[in-house]
Design a protein around this nucleic acid. Structure first.
Lengths: 144, 144
DNA sequence: GACAAATGATACCATAATGGTATCATTATC
DNA sequence: GATAATGATACCATTATGGTATCATTTGTC
């Protein structure tokens, strides 16, 4: 029990995207199948499959069906951000939501708190946005 | 579905603590019963009761049993921080945990990511620490 | 065209976390 | 002793998370 920002979906998704980006770097137009991912990343087949389908629906990936099919990155790795992936699987980062219970907050404590949470929220977004798949496979931070 | 930093437990706890701090400010040694909180804050009785018990066990409150009993703040409002309350109900803020799946991360993407998450983690702690119950009832930020 | 290899869509399931209730025991005051 | 409070704890319902399974569809190869 501890607050977390990245769950298994997101984690696997990022791993898959990084793997595909590395692959693409070598042999240009590489189509990656779920089977390949399972072998390489040692992740549960059915689960990663669902994740890939979601990424496809969200236009992060392109898919090709049938024999020799699989997935490809829909964009350059430097144009896919961690923040985007997080949002796909865990929704937007809206820390302040929680405080406005049922009705709008009656006392202004909450409003004060909400401002502060807003600051944190903004910071997280700023920190995560510049982290791209490309940045991750190169291990450089771009910013830090 | 959206990432959140404060859940209902924490929210109710903060509301109760703020109420008690305000009360104490007027009539010095005020003992607050669960019944009073239920009336004032309109929160479910059994639930807030459990929350108060936890805060008591964690030395945020002192309790008095029997007739005329109830709870009092164990410390001055300015010495009770939001961060402390969050930790009691939601555990420490450890955003980086998630990434180190099962075994230690095999590739250094993760390590890079972890550093960045560490930065965010630190920021959240720095932002939340100076927010005290006193600060909240006065509506001033102390820092911002 | 038949077959096989892939994804598309979607329903399902198990476990844990969250939000909330209930009960019995104990303590303290009147 | 009655009553008003907390202490401890077990329980329950709903939702989120992590993961599986199934059937339909597409597509390349023979």
């Amino acid at each position: 029990m501890s607050i977390k920002l990245i769950n298994r979906n997101t984690d696997y998704a990022v791993q898959a995207l990084c793997y595909m980006a590395r692959r693409e770097h070598k042999h240009k137009p590489h189509v990656t199948s779920v089977s390949e991912l399972v072998e390489e990343l040692k992740v549960p087949r059915a689960f990663i499959r669902k994740i890939m389908q979601i990424l496809n629906n969200e236009s992060v990936l392109l898919s090709k069906r049938g024999w020799g099919g699989g997935f490809r990155l829909a964009r350059e790795p430097k144009k896919i951000s961690l923040l985007e992936v997080v949002k796909v699987f865990q929704g937007p980062i809206k820390l302040s939501e929680c405080v406005l219970q049922k009705e709008a907050c009656p006392n202004k404590n909450n409003c004060f708190l909400r401002r502060r949470l807003g600051t944190i929220e903004q910071f997280i977004n700023i920190q995560l946005k510049p982290i791209t798949i490309e940045g991750m496979i190169n291990g450089n931070s771009n910013v830090l």
